[in-house]
Write a protein that binds this DNA or RNA. Structure first.
Lengths: 207, 207
DNA sequence: CAAATTTATTGAACAGTGTTCAAAAATGCA
DNA sequence: TGCATTTTTGAACACTGTTCAATAAATTTG
């Protein structure tokens, strides 16, 4: 049944084409201006076709949110070049800020917008977020075990660090740092995060 | 010219009526489902009338965002009952979380949504945010002066604390804490924040 | 008081949105 | 080729923010 296989392949290809077009439109015009009709026009199909391959707009956004997590995960895993867990903690923080500032739309999709979360079954697993969260936590656990961070519950450490960096970048991306001089914001964010992590270090060898 | 005065009064009254209706609709159905037509229907006027009193939807949302800040400011100022600045710091953090959890829509309007910020002149003063920020900073300065917090730049302290609490509540409100057991999230947020502030205390007299 | 003028309100219209679904086109099989 | 199945279409529905000529109301003038 080679034909059925080809058909399945074609279905998958059109699925991917839709997502590719959706990502292009999304990155170009942002969440608020991304419409099904624009995506359809981009890939030269009718709006109706999209609904054969995806249940609704939220499902498409969820797929984009998924590939965004792949990108963030890749960036985070590159910090494994650092031998010491504590160094990796700082590197992850810095990479996270860089990723958010370089991919503001993707960041929104991953951590701010409600839409992509609507495509997740009721009360259940947010696998993409879980993956990155657990990776970061594993690094924190190693840092605690090595005596580089105070013996605080890793869950608490993880939530606290994540919340801080998330708070920093979202306040910035949503223009809530208007009281600060524009050019000072990014350095301040990075400094603020570093200093905060530093408070949790066990042996502080401040220069 | 009593008539002109009465007319101005009536204009102001209808302005307020629109905002009252807008706030009701907004709190009932949320940002995504608040439409000009629904607001008009609520106050029994035509959609067109609203545009005589407000430039666009963003301007209305900006007004709501303004009254939301009044509410938050009131809550924050109540923490002044604490004699010691450091106690007030903890109290403000706790009140902030409570306010966000009790008024998720208002919190969105103040710190997450782009819409209300669009009604602010280009690159200029976000007075509402500034007011609360400066108030919090003044408390932090006092705490530093009294030797209750480490001598860190108050601007850095302020941004860090604010980002952490903002990060905690937004991750929660946007359902990004799905990996944690629902009933543990709120206590964990409060604990996480307290522990974080504690790291910045000069004299730690743990439990 | 009546007419003219100014002010306030209306609601249809425009261009857009997500989504559905009967009809049309394309494809596969005999 | 003819028939059956699958795929694609695009008009239609009920919305959205916003505009603006037309209507209604209020005020001023004669």
């Amino acid at each position: 049944m080679g034909i059925n296989e080809r058909k399945e392949r074609e279905k998958a290809e059109l699925s991917q084409l839709i997502l590719k077009g959706a990502m292009e439109v999304f990155l170009e015009v942002g969440f608020e201006n991304t419409s099904i009709r624009k995506i359809a026009e981009r890939i030269e199909y009718s709006p109706g076709t999209i609904y054969v391959y995806f249940k609704d707009k939220d499902e498409i956004l969820h797929e984009l949110h998924h590939t965004a997590f792949d990108q963030l995960m890749e960036v985070m895993e590159k910090t494994a070049v650092h031998q010491e867990p504590i160094d990796q903690v700082y590197a992850i923080g810095d990479s996270y800020i860089t990723f958010a500032l370089e991919n503001p739309q993707l960041y929104d999709l991953m951590f701010v917008l409600r839409a992509p979360m609507n495509a997740i079954n009721p009360e259940c697993e947010w696998e993409d977020g879980f993956r990155t969260y657990e990776y970061f936590k594993s690094v924190l656990i190693k840092a605690v075990e090595k005596g580089q961070l105070k013996p605080v519950d890793p869950e608490v450490l993880c939530v606290t660090f994540w919340a801080t960096v998330h708070g920093l970048v979202t306040l910035y991306l949503r223009e809530r740092f208007q009281n600060l001089p524009q050019e000072q914001i990014e350095p301040l964010m990075r400094y603020s995060l570093r200093e905060m992590v530093k408070q949790y270090e066990l042996v502080t060898s401040d220069q």
